[in-house]
Amino acid sequence: MTIFWIMTALVTALAGLAVLSAARRGAEAESVADRDAGALELAELDRLKARGLLDEAGWTAARAEAGRRLLAARRADRRPVAGPRDRYWVLGGIGATAAATLGLYAVFGAPGMKDQAYETRVREWASAPEALEPAQVAAVLGQVVKERPDDRLALTMLGAARFEAGDPIGAASAFRRALAIQPDDAQSWARLGESLVRANGGTVDGDAEAAFRQAVRLDPDQLGARFYLGDAALARGDRAEARAMWSPLIAVLDPSDPRRAELQTRLAEAAR
């Protein structure tokens, strides 16, 4: 905190210094009337005439107009003179500015709040992994994966974390990368499929179904994959396929489990 207030004081002091030095330069500068104005204007008219853009009569008349205006302006100009107490007004102004800034900042700003750079936060989370939310876990793992892009375990964990954190598309991407490293991981295929299903709002599309099939092919005990494949089959009206997929599932579930009853009901309904 102290460093912060020192920095703000420094910045304000610099600003005040700029104003004071400008005031001193203003006092030392001589009359800032446009020294060349008259000569330049007349020279411009001469140059236009030389280039043929102003004829003789026009040049005479234009010169007359300009000349009279310049003479009148010269008479009307008043020279600026520094006042005796200007210095105090400037100092007072600077003081008022500093006070106003501090006051406004105290009301509208958040003086104590630290910067929260992303990498710093991730490092904090990584050092205390117990009490993290899924999104934070995903962030930490994301960092790990960035440093070790071929770490298959980290990628699968990243996928699971992102799925929990409600980022199914990110989860799918992570699972895809893990499968690129080791394609015969049935569980990752199943999870990829589930991520795609959630990303699609609950419907099983072609990519998800392909993933589930891979999972079941590699490991017939992938129950989650079986469920979705059966679901997709029912949606197509393919009852035989659904039954083939769900039978082991129903067998595994406890008879008092309501989900078992639900699966059986759905299969029965499809028969009609």
Partner: peptide, 29 residues
């Protein structure tokens, strides 16, 4: 923001009183 308001005040005063010190300070602000 505060410096901008200060600049307005100083230059306006500098113009009214024809003071190069105030006007210069306003420019600095």
């Amino acid at each position: 923001l505060a410096l901008s308001v200060l600049s307005l005040a100083l230059t306006a005063a500098g113009r009214l009183r024809l003071s190069p010190v105030l006007a210069g300070a306003g420019g600095g602000a």
